[in-house]
Amino acid sequence: MLSASALRYCHDRHRDPVIDSVSLRVKAGEIVGLTGDSGAGKSTLGRLLAGLLRPQAGRIELDGTPLPRHGLQPVQLLMQTPELAVNPRWRIERILHEAWTPDTTLLEALSIRRDWYSRFPHELSGGELQRVTVARALAPGVRYLIADEISSMLDALTQAELWHALLQVVASRRMGMLVISHDAALLSRVANRCYRLNAGQLDALA
């Protein structure tokens, strides 16, 4: 179980915290939705949970132990713009293999094609590149995913394709996932339960 308790984070010491005493739990095999207005701190909370930011107070634990400081992180973050999440000078093959070597079944499930391997990131569409970053993040040892608005830049068809593939992999590996989105219809499709982040506070939604 991924649990966060009494998290607090401010970007700037002189301003109000973006996240204030937020506690949250995601169980293995569970998909939790997170919504809120822009600037409410959704992305900050996602980065805290993934360990990309360190909270100023509070703890983040995975099955009762703190997140590891070194090595492959068991909580991985998927970002809104895949173009920023990959090195623009690397070819797709190198990007895909940075964390591990994905097996053929996974590549097929995400419809990643071999002929992309020699291309550069700007030669793939947003949806294609997003699937590459998803495959890269699914290394063995990764048990939770934070999906931060991963489909808000995609058209409806590409969005549906991405989510169907991702949900299938997550379910087969019994991974836990936090889905951040301001699209209520999408969250009702993919999440088991939802939270709303408002002025640094977390409320459960029915």
């Binding site: 419809s111 058209d155 409806a156 068809l157 969005q159 549906a160 394709e161 989510w163 169907h164 699209d183 219809a185 999408l186 009702s188 499709r189």
Partner: peptide, 21 residues
């Protein structure tokens, strides 16, 4: 058919994805 698929893939409609690209 592509337009129809796009319409039906909206989360507020069917959230249907075609079998493959």
């Amino acid at each position: 058919p592509y337009t129809r698929a796009l319409w039906q893939a909206l989360p507020s409609n069917g959230f249907q994805a075609p079998a493959r690209e």
